[in-house]
Design a protein around this nucleic acid. Structure first.
Length: 430
RNA sequence: GCCCCGGUAGCUCAACUGGUAGAGCGGCGGGCUGUUAACCCGUAGGUUGCAGGUUCGAGUCCUGCCCGGGGCGCCA
């Protein structure tokens, strides 16, 4: 008797095996019971036929409620009538634990009902599929940078001061001093890339902004590569291959999950370098056709990003934004000091920004001046300025928001489903 | 911070210009040898978010409060 994962059932056709799982759903035709079993690796239909099992086992149908845990023994068969291609002719059922009144039904529920029971909601099929795609994307991210010769450098999560100075941070007590939860590992990556040339960090980041949209979480995961001697064009090229690689990996290994999510594949299958590239100024011109009041110098809002991204089938790279709407560490374009050497990448199908990156200011005096202009506490950033004092080089990097990428690839309505336990505005349970 | 919308059974929703509060799912009981969110018959289940007001009569109209949802801004 072999205990198997449902995902491997196809290898055991004709063999008697055992599956350890939970009851996902059940139907009955009177003398034939159909049990939909999930075990974490997949779903399978188990068929219990009157006369083919002991009456004791046949009658257990009435006992086993939705989400009851059970060990089920039977023979694997291929059957076109099954919703999962393979099914199990049941020999025996062992009820491990009877679940009483499981709250989530096989029907649509409101988000106000589902979010407080996220710990149970994760068992549902779509949520199961999303989490598996999330994991594939995480693996793809690590594999990509591994293959490209990057070193993983973990950035601290407790930090003494703000990274970009603009956003609101979560404050905590650090033995009597103030400390903040990190909103970006970038500045630390700039230090690390001077030691290892190609580095990245991948961890949670925190924003205490009172954002209440389908694109924002208080806690989200970000991957941030940083490369010494790299220019803006270098990181654009890497980003294109990076995004393409992630999409390819999901298409390759997570077909079943994409199908569960009913995610159309046509546009995903077209993702490949090169991506369309326009400058901020060109984007403004295109925007004026739809939004005549939009002025050069303003930052794009959600409707603007949506409009621009729907003009193309692939992710859209927008470069050289006005200096005044971008972070202090971005390097001005030598050919036009009003704009900086930066790029944002907008996901297609109306999903907004998933990547933001730039070439960094590598000149000590210019960086110091920019920090003073922003009224930043220069003392706190002495270490950061040091990087421009000892062997400064041109360097560039970018950040990719994991959950936004998941949202796009899974075609989700809201970012809260892209993370196991979302931290939302004034919602931190469970 | 700003702008919309909603709160009726465990869940998802219905109830016309104010006139006896209903369905599906889930639960419970019964039926069905290939179901696909199975289906069929029966059954229990409600202080219509809270407080006040108008009215012969309020789920429905008015006022206040509470709770929830959606969108924008900020960003990834």
């Amino acid at each position: 008797m072999e205990k198997i994962d449902i995902k491997d059932a196809y290898k055991f056709v004709g063999k008697e095996i055992e599956i350890e799982g939970w009851l996902y759903n059940k139907r009955s035709k009177g003398k034939v019971h159909f049990l939909i079993i999930r075990d974490g690796t997949g779903f399978i239909q188990a068929v219990v036929v009157k006369g083919e099992v002991e009456d004791r086992v046949f009658d257990m149908y009435d006992e086993i409620s939705q989400e009851s845990s059970l060990v089920i023994r039977g023979v694997v068969r291929e059957d076109r009538r099954s919703p999962y291609k393979y099914e199990l002719s049941v020999k025996n059922i062992e009820l491990v634990h009877k679940a009483i009144d499981y709250p989530i039904q096989k029907k649509e529920h409101g988000i106000g009902f589902l979010l407080p029971i996220r710990h149970l909601w994760l068992r549902s099929r779509k949520q199961w599929a999303i989490m598996r795609i999330r994991y594939e994307i995480i693996k793809a991210i690590r594999d990509f940078f591994d293959k490209e010769g990057f070193i993983l450098i973990d950035a601290p999560i407790l930090t003494p001061s703000a990274c970009e100075g603009t956003t609101t941070l979560f404050e905590t007590d650090y033995f009597g001093d103030k400390a903040y939860l990190s909103q970006s590992g970038q500045l630390y990556m700039e230090a690390a890339c001077m030691a290892h040339k190609k580095v990245y960090c991948f961890g949670p980041t925190f924003r205490a902004e009172k954002s209440k949209t389908r694109r924002h979480l208080m806690e989200f995961w970000m991957v941030e590569p940083e490369i010494a001697y790299a220019t803006l064009d270098d990181i654009i090229e890497i980003s294109e291959r990076f995004i393409t690689y992630i999409v390819e990996r999901v298409l390759e290994n997570k077909r079943e999950e994409l199908k569960i999510l009913e995610r159309p594949l046509e546009l995903l299958e077209k993702i490949s370098p090169p991506f369309p590239k326009i400058t901020y100024s060109e984007a403004v011109k295109k925007l004026k056709e739809k939004f005549p009041d939009f002025e050069w110098g303003e930052d794009f809002g959600a409707p603007h990003e949506t409009y621009l991204s729907t003009l193309y089938e692939k992710p859209l790279v927008i470069t050289r934004y006005p200096k005044k709407i971008k972070a202090f560490y971005m390097k001005p374009d030598p050919e036009n000091p009003d704009v900086v050497l930066c790029m944002d990448i907008l996901a297609p199908e109306g999903y907004g920004e998933i990547i933001g990156g730039s070439e960094r200011e590598d000149n000590y005096e210019k960086l110091l001046q920019r920090m003073k202009e922003e009224k930043m506490p220069v003392e706190d950033y002495k270490w950061y300025l040091d990087l421009r004092k000892y062997g400064s080089v041109p360097h560039s990097g970018f950040g990719l928001g994991l959950e936004r990428t998941i949202c796009w690839i899974c075609k989700l309505e809201h970012i809260r489903e892209a993370i196991p336990f979302p931290r939302l505005l004034e919602k931190i349970y469970p």
